[in-house]
Amino acid sequence: MRRVAVVVCALLLVASCGRGGADGDSGRLPGAPTGLTAAAGSATSVHVMWNALPDSSGIRAYEVYRGTTKVDEVPGSEHMVDVTRLRPSTVYVFTVRARGGDGSLGPRSRAVRATTPAMVAADRSAPSRPTRPDGRAVGSRAVQLSWGASKDDRAVVSYDIWQGGAKIHSVGGNQTAAVVTGLRPGTRYVFSVRARDAADNLSPASAAVRLTTPGTGAGRDTAPTAFTARTHEKSGACYLDLAWDPPRVDGVVTEYQIRLDAGTTISLVWGGTPPKGHSASSFYVGRDRGVVHHVRLRARLPDGTWGGWSVERTVTTGT
């Protein structure tokens, strides 16, 4: 499954992820983005992704180039883009550059190539809904799911398995069963299945399958630990610098939800491989000094559920 980019559900202008601390070199250029990939999404589009830079001072934006031509610019909180209006059966070369909070432009990433496929007849017909979904627990950390095959005018290429609102697994189109692992003991889950065809058309979701894994300790040790929050200023702008240790769970945590003050929610998703240990994020919160902020965060666990909230920290800008 592809990683997703950072989605901002509130006012968030700059974010960066990785290992880091307070910014001690305000004049340093941002580094070159790493982990760049490019894959054709259709005959006229290419999906480009890269890793967030581990720069605690924040990144204002990323610029995406096709050859020497700048084709898009996204906020520093995002690490993916679909480049459209391309020609079928054509090779393209892409690079990405980061623009720092002070406007400085860093070096280019390594170049990657992608080839758009030939144009084919449009397919706008989604597969039918998977039928007769069923399941059972196979231990305290796994379930086995099954369903009836979907029908499509061409072919079903995969089935996506969802837990609540999160896609957590995918199997080939010739399979009508799957074992989902990495779950938590003593936890209620709601699963559904959707079929996907070669044109990326998705079927309606199957009926829900509700299962409870046996055992206890469902909510134990799911909150991030060693959570700290600090502030720093750069060029008259105020930033919040967060750092934490991920919860110890089966699988990799790629998404966090940050709760800032009363109801402001920021979703943070790594565009590449997340750090294995201590993690950090820095984002812009305004230009006023003396503003008090309350902040905490939680992780979306590999089983698709949200873990517990970290302790809440209180910080004041300009201190």
Rank of each mutant, 00 (worst) to 15 (best):
S16I: 08
S16D: 14
S26E: 12
R28M: 09
A32T: 04
P33M: 00
T34Y: 04
G35R: 02
W50L: 02
G58V: 07
E63R: 15
T68D: 15
T69E: 15
K70C: 11
V74S: 03
E78Q: 15
H79I: 13
V83H: 05
L86N: 00
L86M: 04
P88H: 05
R97C: 05
R97W: 05
A98G: 09
G103M: 01
G103Q: 01
T115C: 10
T116K: 06
A126N: 04
P130S: 00
R132T: 15
P133G: 01
A137N: 02
V138L: 04
V143K: 01
S150D: 06
D152C: 00
S158R: 06
I161C: 07
K167V: 05
N174G: 13
R194Y: 02
L202E: 00
P204Q: 07
S206V: 01
A207H: 08
G217F: 07
R220N: 14
T225P: 12
T228C: 00
E233P: 12
E233A: 15
A243N: 13
W244A: 04
W244N: 01
D245G: 10
R248I: 06
Y256K: 09
Q257A: 14
Q257W: 09
Q257V: 12
L260I: 08
T265E: 10
H278R: 15
S282W: 02
Y284H: 09
R289V: 12
V291A: 13
L301S: 04
L301H: 06
T305P: 14
G318I: 11
